[in-house]
Amino acid sequence: MGLEVKNYWVLQVAGREIWITETIVNTWIIMLVLIVLAMIARIKLRSFKDIPTGFQNAIEAIVETFDAFALDSLGEKLTYISPWFFMVFIFILSCSLFSVFGLRAPTADWATTFAFALATFILMLFMGIRHREGSYLKSFIEPHPIFFPLNLLGELSKPVSLSFRLFGNMLSGTIILTLYYALTPLFVQIGVPALLHAFFDVLFGALQTYIFVVISLMYVRGAVD
């Protein structure tokens, strides 16, 4: 684990440099684990029974909890976008959980968090136009057309603040752990960092994941209602 994002390879594509950084490789590792889990769940889905046991029980509990949460914060008519937010939730949560094992969390890089926040922003605009059409676009020039720059600035600051919140929290945890590993002698590096990992990775990671998803849902709902 380090303060800076390491760069592994540089690819040349059409005269441009494409950097394969530590973030991208770690994202691939997490994606691989999640895709394998999803495929196992899909294969097991064929033999699901009416009365759940074991693995099926766990999967159903996770999905039902998230569905109830999405229904609570999105309302009836918008629950069809909850799978996307379930993916975001699971991915960001596993990013912070994998950093317990020494992978640098991909969310401690602004590129990842801004990608998710931009996706939320585009989804917000799309859902607003789809569900409210003219009246959503009209909300940019309310209460008077002279307020248009202010409203636009307010909307554009949403993805920025959303991404910086998650990025700052994960980066501060990474910095504190790196400083601890760099400054302390070897005999206190066994056992004690477990507490720091539990606090900065597991607790803060879970809390910030929840907050990211709740605020994303709030923005989408605010655009639709």
Binding site: S161, R165, G168, L207, Q208, Y210, I211, V214, I215, M218
Partner: peptide, 13 residues
Amino acid sequence: FIGLAMGETSGIY
């Protein structure tokens, strides 16, 4: 929690 996250933004900046 939502309010705490909103208030935290300025500290993060």
